[in-house]
């Protein structure tokens, strides 16, 4: 009616009957306007996004010019004195994210497997909703939960700091990651302050935030494992766990890795939960149980109010480093999900 389609040439006599012919389309004015409008929308979004990226880079240049590559190796943060870098907070960010992922991945895998494989068909949709709801809980709520319940009542209880961190420091303290300097768990007069506000506790809070994200990606791919292969495994005599190991997990491997990386991307950028709990230090702090730590995002929240231009430039550069990391992780996740068998099935 409105799109006029004319085959521009009749099929030649010798050509096979169903060879594709060239088709010329003439669009109506309404269509042209419409296409112009949506293309305009796309261009506006593109401009906004590019503006953010370019602006961040441009404003970070003075800081990077001052410090050069030392920006990645210096630990202090003294922009006025001309000595500042992200080494300490970068390591802190990675450690917090690592703790979060180590806790979140088993939890998310278990939950996803339960919803996709074990839960009764009737309650599974409700559980899916609950996990999605958990992903929507604001980060500040997780932060105050960590600050007022997790730390004082579950992990570092009382004057002596009873709890998992103390146990780890006492019995696994020989392992460098778990060492706590200046803290003797057998000293009856010792205080718990060496164990509070640590990377470990911040990591647990971040784990709570990323677990539902990882879990929902995993559940999605697990539930797409082909029914025929499942029943084939059962028919060959597999138990349910045998079926999961031989069909569901290999099928969902791409989704598992991709989901984990998506969660990692979120964990790296998390601000408020970390900022509320951790006591900020500007040195490389490899002992995850020891009080003090840091992350790039909480560095920005802590120091954004300083009004000197070089300080802001430094924060921009730090933000750029953080953005670069999350970008890399997210693109990696996308690639892995798309390349995997489960990803190909989910894209249809």
């Amino acid at each position: 009616m409105t799109v006029v389609v004319t085959p521009s040439d009749a099929p030649a006599a010798g050509a096979p009957a169903d060879a594709p012919r060239r088709v010329r389309q003439r669009r109506t004015p309404t269509d042209l306007v419409f296409r112009g409008v949506i293309r305009f929308g796309g261009i506006v979004v593109l401009l906004i996004m590019l503006l953010v990226g370019i602006f961040l880079t441009l404003r970070a240049v003075p800081a990077l010019r001052t410090m050069g590559w030392r920006f990645l190796t210096a630990q202090e943060w003294d922009p006025v004195g001309g000595n500042f870098g992200v080494a300490g907070v970068l390591i802190g960010t990675l450690l917090i994210a690592a703790v979060a992922i180590v806790i979140a991945v088993p939890l998310a895998t278990g939950t996803a497997l339960y919803i996709a494989e074990y839960a009764p068909r009737r309650i599974a949709p409700m559980l899916v909703n609950l996990v999605d709801l958990m992903a929507a809980v604001p980060s500040v709520v997780y932060g105050i939960w960590g600050l007022y319940l997790l730390q004082p009542h579950l992990l570092v209880v009382g004057e002596q700091g009873e709890g998992l961190p103390r146990w780890l420091a006492t019995y696994l303290g020989w392992f460098p990651l778990f060492r706590v300097d200046g803290y003797d768990p057998r000293d009856p007069l010792g205080s718990n302050s060496a164990l509070t506000s640590s990377t470990f506790i911040a990591g647990i809070i971040v784990a709570m935030m990323v677990t539902p994200i990882i879990s929902s990606v995993m559940r999605e791919v697990f539930s797409q494992a082909p029914v025929g292969e499942r029943e084939g495994a059962f028919a060959l005599g597999a138990t349910r766990w045998g079926m999961i190991r031989s069909v569901v997990l290999p099928f969902g491997r791409g989704g598992m890795i991709g989901g984990t990386m998506l969660g990692l991307g979120r964990a790296l950028g998390e601000t408020i939960g970390v900022y509320l709990v951790i006591s900020f230090v500007f040195v490389i702090q490899p002992h995850i149980l020891q009080s003090g730590g840091g992350s790039i995002s909480s560095l920005i929240a802590l120091r954004y109010a300083e009004s000197n231009p070089i300080g802001i430039a430094g924060l921009m550069a730090a933000g750029l480093v953080l953005f670069g990391m999350t970008l890399l992780v997210n693109f990696g996740a996308g690639l892995i999900i798309n390349r995997s068998r489960s990803g190909a099935a989910s894209d249809a």
């Binding site: 979004v45 593109l46 996004m49 590019l50 953010v52 990226g53 602006f55 961040l56 404003r59 991307g265 790296l268 950028g269 998390e270 601000t271 995002s297 920005i300 929240a301 954004y304 802001i312 924060l315 921009m316 933000g319 953080l322 953005f323 999350t326 970008l327 992780v329 997210n330 693109f331 996308g334």
Partner: peptide
């Protein structure tokens, strides 16, 4: 580009508007 921007940490979005 849009997929890349989903990785933008929210604090960096705030820092952009602030700057």
């Amino acid at each position: 580009i849009v997929e890349a921007m989903t990785a933008l940490p929210s604090i960096v979005a705030g820092l952009f508007i602030y700057a």
